[in-house]
Amino acid sequence: MHRGLKSLLLAAPLGVAAMAGCSAPADPQVTFYSHGEAVEVAPARFCDPGGEQCSPPPADPVGELHVPERSPLQISVPGEVSATPWQVAYIYRDADGREIDGRTPVFRPDERRTYTLRVPADGTRLEHVEVQQYSAVLTADADGGVDFGISGTWVLDPR
């Protein structure tokens, strides 16, 4: 796992809300599509907006999809995700072997349900992608500002 973006998965509290005899609704899936192939990915982390009740993570929280060099990656989120602020964080390796991370702007609620990620066409390889859904939880950061918590994370490692 990549250290920076994947640290959320390691530090995420794993609270479980379950009631005997009741079936909970399925967690939202994010669809990743490239070069004629698609994969639906379950959340590696999914919590209520307050970040208190979290679904247990799947056994394998990382989706895989073949994304050829120079090919875009299309991402489609369900209404449950697009109704909240969300963004895409990614890591790619450039032609010189350097690891470069980036992120999209934060999309406002109901602004969009899809995003196409394009990496430079100079031999760059996409290595890691996360869709991150923001929660209503605010925490103070070291610089005196605030950080929003992440309530949902969907992870893809292109191959």
Rank of each mutant, 00 (worst) to 15 (best):
G79F: 07
Y134S: 15
L8F: 13
G63Q: 08
M1R: 08
T124M: 06
R113C: 02
V131D: 03
R45C: 02
G102E: 01
R112M: 05
T84R: 03
P78R: 05
D101K: 05
Q133N: 09
Q132C: 06
T153M: 14
P43A: 04
I100T: 11
H2D: 13
P28W: 04
A20D: 07
R112V: 12
G97D: 03
P72S: 07
V16W: 05
V16F: 08
A140M: 15
E99C: 01
P68Q: 07
E52L: 11
A42K: 03
T124P: 00
R112L: 03
P57H: 00
V131A: 02
D147Y: 07
V137M: 15
A95Y: 05
V146L: 15
P25L: 07
D48A: 01
A20W: 08
P49F: 06
D48F: 01
R113W: 03
D96K: 08
G97S: 10
S76D: 12
V16L: 10
Q29W: 04
P49W: 04
Q132L: 14
Q133D: 12
V16D: 06
V129Q: 01
I150L: 12
V39C: 06
D101F: 05
G102A: 06
V106A: 09
T153Q: 14
W154F: 15
Q132Y: 03
D101L: 06
D147C: 07
A42F: 12
A121S: 11
G145W: 14
P78Y: 02
Q53Y: 07
T84L: 05
E37M: 12
T153W: 04
L8A: 07
H128Q: 03
A18N: 13
Q87K: 15
E64S: 11
S76A: 11
V41S: 03
T124F: 03
A42L: 15
Q53A: 14
D143V: 13
I91H: 05
V129D: 02
T124W: 06
G50W: 12
E64N: 09
P109F: 09
G144K: 11
E64Y: 00
Q53S: 11
E111F: 08
T31V: 14
V88Y: 01
K6W: 15
G4F: 14
R125H: 10
G152W: 01
A26G: 13
D141W: 10
I100V: 15
C54P: 14
T124L: 05
P109T: 08
Q133V: 04
H2C: 07
A12L: 12
H128L: 04
A44D: 05
E127I: 01
S7V: 10
P25H: 07
H2R: 15
A38K: 11
P120C: 01
Y115L: 08
V30A: 06
W86C: 06
K6T: 15
Y92E: 09
G149Q: 13
V88K: 00
D101S: 11
G102S: 04
D110Q: 09
L5I: 15
L65F: 04
D143S: 14
S34V: 09
G15F: 14
R93V: 13
P85R: 00
G21D: 04
P158W: 02
V137P: 10
P109E: 12
L9P: 04
P109D: 13
D60K: 13
C54Q: 06
D27F: 07
I91K: 01
R159F: 08
G79D: 11
G51Q: 09
V16K: 03
L65S: 02
T124N: 04
R159I: 11
P158H: 00
Q74V: 10
G63C: 12
